[in-house]
């Protein structure tokens, strides 16, 4: 059932939901900036409803990976298929349609400074769905804010919110157009431990509520432990180890072990 990943030294894959379809395939992609080879023949597969954490040191190319997945960057070699569609070859319109089904939570939240929370949430809604949901806009905005537990902030500007609140609003913006896949770029970086745990719980909550798959980029081991169904260790540009949190924790490989100390 589960596809074999070529360089996976880790133990058997955890069983995703039986018969789960593959929503994301990254196949042998490479990406380099000048002489800096960030990704070398990296591959991964994501199943529906599964939370996969890509673990790696800073600068190991984790962010480059998800930017390639969403089409912000183009890999030098290899293919990426999201929901069965090859990202690199899609035209503007098709890519936009595809992106409507993929949520992206930016490391810096990327809330639009000049807009209120409501306008921030409406932006992807109006952009992706245009006129279809005119009457429901308000309802959808409130629903998304309720999901992240911040309904009272609706008319505030991002600058008036705390770091944790901003992260939640950014998550709400990711959820307002219901995603099938959510890409989290270091969701807990820069947050205090308490807030970080709240975000971790929120990620789990979202997974259950929306039945969405998630690819989480992180180097926060608590986050990895709390949110992952499966962990891929990215080192030297490739998928170095793969398994559940427990499996990797038990690994004796020095590179793997280094993350768990």
């Amino acid at each position: 059932m589960s596809p074999a990943l070529p360089p996976a030294p880790a133990a058997a894959l955890p069983a995703p939901a039986p018969g789960a379809e593959v929503v994301l395939t990254v196949d042998n992609i490479s990406k380099s900036f000048g002489d800096n080879h960030v990704l070398k023949d990296f591959s991964l597969t994501l199943h529906r409803g599964e939370n996969v954490v890509v673990l790696g040191k800073s600068g190991s190319g984790k962010s480059v990976l998800i930017k390639c997945i969403i089409g912000l960057l183009t890999p030098d070699a290899g293919t990426i298929a999201v929901l069965g569609q090859p990202v690199a070859t899609l035209g503007h319109a098709a890519l936009d349609q595809l992106r409507a089904k993929v949520g992206f939570l930016f490391q810096s939240n990327a809330l639009y400074d000049s807009m209120t929370v409501r306008e921030n949430l409406l932006f992807p809604l109006r952009r992706h769905w245009l006129a279809d949901h005119k009457g429901q806009e308000d309802k959808l905005v409130h629903e998304a804010l309720d999901d992240v537990g911040l309904p009272q902030t609706i008319d505030q500007l991002p600058a008036e919110l705390s770091g944790g609140q901003r992260k939640r609003i950014a998550l709400a913006r990711t959820l307002i157009v219901p995603p099938e896949i959510i890409l989290y770029d270091e969701p807990t970086t820069g947050l205090d431990p308490v807030t970080a745990r709240e975000i971790d719980q929120l990620i789990r909550h979202v997974q259950q509520k929306y039945h969405a798959s998630a690819l989480i980029i992180s180097h926060d081991m608590n986050c990895v432990r709390l949110t992952s169904d499966r962990v891929i260790l990215l080192a030297e540009g490739r998928s170095y180890a793969e398994g559940t949190y427990a499996e990797l924790l038990a690994s004796t490989d020095p590179i793997v072990h280094a993350f768990f100390e």
Binding site: I70, L72, F104, F106, F123, P124, R127, H128
Partner: peptide
């Protein structure tokens, strides 16, 4: 980048 992934 956020705008771009929001279909804009």
């Amino acid at each position: 980048d956020a705008m771009e992934v929001s279909g804009t």
